[in-house]
Design a protein around this nucleic acid. Structure first.
Lengths: 146, 146
DNA sequence: TATAATTAAATAGTATTCAATTATTTTGTC
DNA sequence: GACAAAATAATTGAATACTATTTAATTATA
């Protein structure tokens, strides 16, 4: 086996994770100007998405929804609290749990965010079938990896 | 239109970027134990991939290959230099350019890394066709987004 | 009931990202 | 050809994110 062949598997062009990593970051970069308008980072945005749907959730459950642990979420939630979009308080039943609840202001933000998904859709420029295929493959990997 | 419909596009389950983001991070998390063995972060690893192939490259070009800007690369490269895997020096022709060159130690690291792609392949558990499909979609998005 | 094990979140340290700055080279104009 | 303006490349600093460790609360077991 020559040298070229031996190291083939370590070439950047033969990686699948790399375009995943790159693609994820490029898209989040595309989100930035839209998210700047409502003063949220991408992580804050997906956190708000969960809260817009559920209204109230503890950090553990939130982390399971977002695949993020408390080490990442704690500062994100403190930031969202300081912006007035959420409240954080310990559960009475189990003091270990911190319950996060959306505020009126947090609810209001939803209407400002509502145009973002459509704007992003025009950046990605995939057909509906392609998006569906990608979506399924990604969740399949997530299921396999965990 | 009822409330449910109105906000449909903001639901986490209707996002394509989110599973991309989550998947990317989950896979990188899977890399971690393997990369720990050779004391590299994922970013350092893909940087070394380029250098294993090209031996020498300037920061600009490296950034284009990795979709990373110099603000991200500068600390990564300083770290790799401190580990003895690369040398950094300004180009003579154009002092603005910093040329990064792999060292003997950097070359040696390649043999320690060689088993990683196969180990990762078993985590992802996709068929060859699925991997190919994913790969093409991801690069298509990257092409569209930039 | 006391102790060990488990669970949940916070903290601390490191890595990564983005915006602004510095240094160098190139371009355009007189 | 000399000079200012524009463009280019990398660094710095501040903010954000990630991982491992710690702290606090609860549950299970001896």
């Amino acid at each position: 086996m020559n040298n070229e062949e031996k190291y083939e598997s370590l070439k950047l062009c033969n990686q699948v994770c790399f375009p995943l990593y790159a693609c994820s970051k490029e898209i989040i970069r595309k989100y930035k100007p839209f998210l700047d308008e409502i003063d949220l980072t991408y992580t804050q945005y997906i956190t708000m998405m969960v809260l817009w749907e559920k209204k109230s959730v503890n950090v553990k459950t939130l982390g399971e929804s977002l695949y993020l642990d408390s080490g990442t979420l704690t500062p994100v939630l403190k930031k969202l609290e300081s912006k007035g979009y959420i409240n954080r308080e310990r559960s009475n039943e189990d003091e270990r749990n911190l319950v996060v609840t959306i505020t009126k202001e947090g609810e209001n933000l939803r209407d400002k965010a509502i145009s973002i998904p459509a704007k992003m859709g025009t950046c990605v420029k995939l057909s509906l079938e392609e998006v569906q295929c990608l979506y399924n493959l990604l969740y399949k990997i997530i299921g396999n990896v965990r």
